[in-house]
Amino acid sequence: MSVRTQQRSAAAEGRRRPSPQERPRTPGRPAPSATPPARLDGRAAAALMLGGAGMFIFNIVFGPLAIVLGLRAARDPRGGRFGRLGGRLGVVLGILDLAILAVLLISRIGSDGLTWQLGG
């Protein structure tokens, strides 16, 4: 018997099905919510983390990765509202990573040439 058939038969008898909020709760279990919590897409979360970390370390690697993962998350229709938003923010952070790298390289080349020094 389908759900619609059960609902019609319940309506014909003059009774209605209780909503999830009206159903008695089982001890130790939370009440069921009407809407599931919004989840952040894994690619969007990775783009945000890589973009944030790229502002401080390895921006030549983390920036492009954040952009690629962010674009994929933003274009995925299953990502939901927060997946798309997280993807867009990941792209912005990835672009910011590359801009920081460009500023650092330009300031380094303009002052005394490009030299890398490991240690003190």
Rank of each mutant, 00 (worst) to 15 (best):
M1A: 10
V3G: 01
V3Y: 13
T5F: 09
Q6Y: 08
Q6V: 14
Q7E: 11
S9R: 12
A10V: 00
A12M: 01
G14V: 00
R17N: 06
P18G: 04
P18Q: 06
P20F: 09
P20L: 14
E22C: 04
P24L: 09
R25G: 08
R25P: 02
T26E: 13
T26W: 15
A31M: 11
P32Q: 01
P32K: 15
A34K: 11
A38I: 09
A38P: 12
L40R: 13
L40P: 01
A44H: 10
A44K: 08
A45Y: 05
A46V: 11
L48R: 11
L50V: 12
L50H: 06
G51N: 03
G54R: 11
M55Y: 02
M55D: 00
F56W: 12
I57Q: 04
I60R: 13
F62Y: 12
G63S: 11
P64H: 15
L65G: 12
L65C: 14
A66L: 08
L69W: 12
G70E: 07
L71K: 09
L71D: 04
L71E: 02
A73C: 14
A73Y: 07
A73Q: 04
A73W: 02
A74R: 12
R78L: 11
G80V: 07
R81A: 07
F82G: 05
F82H: 13
R84P: 00
L85D: 01
L85G: 02
L89V: 05
G90N: 05
L93F: 13
L93I: 12
L96Y: 07
L96I: 04
L96F: 08
D97W: 02
D97V: 03
A102K: 06
A102P: 05
V103K: 09
V103E: 03
L104S: 07
L104Y: 05
L104F: 10
L105A: 10
I106A: 13
I106F: 14
S107D: 03
S111W: 01
D112S: 14
L114F: 15
Q117H: 12
L118W: 09
G120Q: 05
